[in-house]
Write a protein that binds this DNA or RNA. Structure first.
Lengths: 80, 80
DNA sequence: GCAATTTGTTATGTAAACACAACAATTATT
DNA sequence: AATAATTGTTGTGTTTACATAACAAATTGC
């Protein structure tokens, strides 16, 4: 078991204008950790994933998934 | 950051009559690992949590949460 | 009853998540 | 242009998720 996990942390951060440092502080991890996650250098623990999803008010699957997320432009084509 | 994570793996397993061994095989981990998770001996990786949720066809938050899950009897009192 | 399956326990090893530090590169602000 | 803020990179150390094994206890099936 070692599947790639895609994430949209950077997108959700950009959406509300939040720096890595700020997000790191909110979920109580090292700022570097957020960078490592965004670049896919390593996968988050469930604990961290739950905390991040909780902060953005969405489900874990909205931020983390086995399947790659469609680009913004792709998403705008089909409604929603 | 080190919050307790509650889970309902055993419930979802029981619901469909699935042994730990079987679930372990499905999500490709050691059978002991499922036992460790159910007893709260350790928290799953996001990868494993996603795989388990995916198999049961529910959201990660339906199986794993920071807040304890209500008991079945508790749940039956208030509809749904 | 016995046998098989499921679950629980303990122990040891490894890989990877995360902490922390120090600094380079890039981008934004004035 | 200079300063500050954000992001990227590299390295070292600790903790813990998970693998594997071996076996005890409990449960289920015949």
């Amino acid at each position: 078991m070692s599947r790639v996990i895609h994430n949209r942390i950077a997108m959700f951060r950009a959406d509300v204008g939040l720096s890595r440092r700020d997000l790191a502080e909110i979920v109580a991890v090292n700022p570097q950790t957020i960078g490592f996650l965004e670049r896919g250098d390593y996968k988050p623990s469930l604990e961290l994933a739950l905390a991040i999803a909780e902060h953005f008010g969405v489900a874990v699957e909205d931020i983390f998934a086995f399947q790659p997320f469609p680009s913004l432009s792709e998403q705008l084509k089909r409604g929603s």
